[in-house]
Design a binder for these strands. Structure first.
Lengths: 185, 185
DNA sequence: CCTTGTTGGTTCAATGACCGAACCATGGAT
DNA sequence: ATCCATGGTTCGGTCATTGAACCAACAAGG
């Protein structure tokens, strides 16, 4: 929103939060970061976001301490964007949004989120009904649901097809790897 | 966002949800509705939102089945906007946003949300840690925190100063009632 | 040395959303 | 007849978003 102007008048933590993560695309960038996306180009192809907007959002998220830049190679200097603790703390927001969307809009089951320790699907507040605890973000296992496209076009979506823990980095073969089908058996 | 265009390409419940409630102001309108605001004019003064934008958001929320119009008097025909079940289901989203904002941005404690039955403060998803259950929205008690302005300018904010359950309708004296100070003891 | 490829951006014109102020309509009340 | 309360619509100016094009650092290959 880059609003500042108006929400500022609101005495409300929700409004404060929305000033930071309420702009278009912002929460989807955070979602991708939770899914393990870390590189500029991966965000770009996975989100289909305009380059200028992505650059602007990444800057805002850095400035707010939600992402941080981390050098991952020196030769050609390259940085990746990883979630800070503050950024990871947005998981409940995304979880509740996703559940609301699934139960009230979709009907389809695109992804499931399970407790990695026991395989139980998380409850409506991110807890494991079996273990009776709130599951820490790295212990959340994301598995593709029955309604997820099994052969998406972009390589990032393909990398996200197999079960993975949240925050586990997405790694892509240099180019044109993983043709379309499943593993080379 | 009235986006449609781009998020539509996302195979993700979060993106679907954001297409509906991700526009500027939309979640704040839903928040006010949870707080018990029901009338056009009350939204207007409490949010400080441009009239045209409010009208547009109310229409969208009606169309999505998040709010519904209800006739509350006939003589001059007047309608109020109340949350549907689908709208009420957004409470965990707002709760987690508010908690994130309070813990990661503010530091201030503007409002607390407690389980009316036992007085315990709710967790990130609106659950009661003591009772280990999800608290139904009408059983959530909103109490003003120590950092909330004790004498706000607009009458809606003043009506929200006393402890109240969510969804309990805000009623305003016809005009200029409740001067500024506390109750007439 | 020159070109090409990869990554990560910036710039720009056009479109669309948002803003604030003004205006309009309906139906009592004075 | 006029005024007020409520719930809007209209309109010009401004700001954000979009998509395409361009730029830059660096490595590898010929």
């Amino acid at each position: 929103m880059a609003l500042g102007k108006d929400y500022a008048s609101q005495e409300c933590s929700i409004a404060r939060a929305l000033e930071i993560v309420g702009e278009r695309w912002t929460l989807l960038v955070v979602r991708d970061a939770l899914y393990g996306v870390r590189r500029y180009n991966d965000f770009l192809v996975h989100l289909g976001i305009p380059r200028a907007v992505l650059a602007s959002r990444l800057q805002s998220l850095l400035a707010e301490g939600i992402l941080e830049k981390r050098r991952y190679q020196e030769s050609p200097p390259r940085d990746e964007y990883v979630l800070t603790e503050r950024g990871t703390a947005l998981w409940p927001v995304l979880r509740s949004l996703g559940r609301w969307g699934r139960e009230n809009i979709d009907g389809t089951l695109l992804r499931e989120f399970r407790h990695a320790d026991c395989g139980t699907e998380l409850g409506s507040y991110g807890e494991c009904p079996a273990c009776a605890t709130v599951v820490p973000v790295p212990d959340v296992l994301m598995v593709p649901g029955p309604d997820l496209d099994p052969a998406p076009a972009d390589p990032v979506s393909r990398a996200l097809l197999k079960p993975r823990r949240l925050l586990e980095p997405v790694v892509l073969g240099p180019a044109g790897a993983e043709p379309v089908g499943v593993d080379p058996a």
